[in-house]
Design a binder for these strands. Structure first.
Length: 441
RNA sequence: CACCCUAUCGUCCAGUGGCCUAGGACACUCCCCUUUCACGGGAGUAACACGGGUUCGAAUCCCGUUAGGGUGGCCA
């Protein structure tokens, strides 16, 4: 039987990283086994359940690159994939339980009468667990339907997993304790329960539960901050699972190849945004320029930065790329290449571009650059160093004023590369402004 | 309160009875490289929760304690 996994989020208005990881592991497992990954939206009658909230989920999964084979926007043979549209199916399953005598009414709600037995769950991750459900006091009967006719999660989730022929239910450990009750439902419906795999939860660094407001909890903040989806996938797959051999940077393809449910940890993981940040930096560093530009484009456009030719943008991105670790910071690194209205960083100006000495040095550098016949990084470096020798000062004392004059900032890519790209005319103009600024200050 | 899961550096993982005076990565500190900031390289701080067993031998197996997490909803 071919593997079918599913991710079944409820639209709460955000896609939680924990949910994103659950989705990722389901997706990985399906891909590994050439199976089917189903997306089902658990939107049973909720007030918070808006169109926008559903989009957040879909957008998040799209961004992470977790394409589903069946579900919203995609269709499939086991739909509909919104629980709000599956009422007739639930009615049908409910009547089957009714006929078999498993149900009773309680204050208008419909409840399932537990057989009161011991139930064994063979979990792919947690192993064999025996639950004793014989005591109604500690394990009350499941409610399946409210008096107003709306459905309860436990019931519809089981029905859908049967109907959608889910073979592996991979979900958070918070569902483990209710699993034996689900198993009772499967049996009462004459269905074979799927394989279960309960994954450890993701907590905060301090071990507390991650709430919506905690930093990094909402997946939507990652694209905004300028993380690469492949980097976030990498980080998430390392939470509760390991490729062994002390590997950290690993492609999704390799994760799929190496992944196995029985190697998933049983211990809750703490979320560490620092590490995610580092991994992102590694990806950005090694990324080819085409992909980098693709990811960078929205941030540049949003900042109102425009570039004359793709070649010019490419040259700039090439030298700036190793410096930027979050794409949202990219505009401030590249803006000086594409504007004539330079904004100066006050601290950098105060440090390197203030006073007659700085002005005089820049003047000398400007003169030697003005007489330069070849405008390339190597020549620019030679020229600057010669000027420094003539002035009897260290290279850095020329470099810093020049950098601020040319870019407005105290930090940036290699100075000579910057100056080469900027071009002689603009550089000399900026030197002039810098000299005036330093002398006047 | 009951039941379930878990317990290795601050964090994520490696470790499935001897190879462990416990390894890698992030973070942190220091050094080197260097025109800045990064990157890179090197060094360092830092952990088997506790107590009993089992065994020639335990981070690894068993029991207990403690701690954390989860479930016990007519939330999902």
């Amino acid at each position: 039987m071919s593997v079918r996994t599913r991710f079944a989020p409820s639209p709460t208005g955000l896609l939680h990283v924990g949910g994103a990881r659950t989705a990722l592991f389901n997706w990985i497992y399906a891909r590994k086994n050439a199976g089917t990954f189903v997306l089902r939206i658990e939107d049973t009658d909720h007030t918070r359940n808006t169109e926008q909230a559903k989009e957040v989920i879909l957008d998040g999964l799209h961004w992470l690159g977790l394409d589903w084979d069946e579900g919203p926007q995609k269709g499939g043979n086991h739909g509909p994939y919104y629980q709000s549209e599956r009422g007739a199916i639930y009615e049908d399953y409910l009547s089957r339980l009714e006929k078999a005598g498993h149900l009773y009414e309680d204050n208008g709600a419909i409840r399932f009468r537990s057989p009161r037995e011991k139930v064994v769950v063979e979990d792919e991750i947690c192993g064999r667990i025996e639950f004793d459900l014989t005591n109604p006091g500690t394990h009350p009967d499941l409610t399946l339907r409210r008096p107003d006719g709306s459905w309860i999660f436990h019931f519809v989730s089981v029905v859908d997993d049967i109907e959608m022929k889910i073979t592996h239910v991979i979900r958070g450990e918070d569902h483990l304790s209710n699993t034996p009750k689900h198993v009772e439902l499967y049996k009462a419906l004459g269905a074979v329960p799927p394989r279960f795999a309960h994954m450890p939860l993701i907590l905060n660094r301090d071990g507390s539960k991650m709430s919506k407001r905690d930093e990094g909890a909402a997946l939507g903040t990652y694209p905004e901050a300028g993380y690469a989806p492949e980097a976030v996938r990498n980080y998430l797959s390392l939470l509760g699972w390991s490729p062994k051999e002390n590997r950290e940077i690993i492609s999704t393809e390799e994760v799929i190849a190496l992944f196995n449910l029985d190697q998933v940890n049983r211990r809750n993981a703490a979320f560490d945004l620092d590490k995610c940040f580092w991994i992102n930096g590694q990806y950005l560093l090694q990324m080819d320029l085409a992909r980098y530009a693709e990811l960078a484009m929205p941030f540049l456009e949003k900042a109102g930065i425009s570039w004359p030719t793709w070649e010019s943008l490419e040259r700039v991105l090439t030298i700036v790329k190793p410096k930027v670790k979050l794409l949202k910071d990219l505009p401030e690194w590249v803006v000086c290449f594409f504007t004539e209205e330079l904004t100066y960083d006050d601290a950098a100006v105060a440090k390197s571009l203030t006073g007659e000495t700085a002005a005089e040095r820049l003047r000398k550098l400007s003169d030697s650059y003005a007489s330069l016949t070849s405008w390339d990084a190597a020549s620019l470096e030679v020229s600057l160093k010669e000027t420094a020798v003539k002035l009897g000062i260290k290279t850095g004392e020329l470099v810093h004023p020049a950098r601020v004059a040319v870019s407005g900032r105290g930090i940036g890519p290699g100075l000579y590369e910057m100056i080469e790209i900027l071009g002689k005319e603009r550089v000399l103009t900026r030197f002039g402004k810098g000299i005036a600024k330093a002398a006047g200050a």
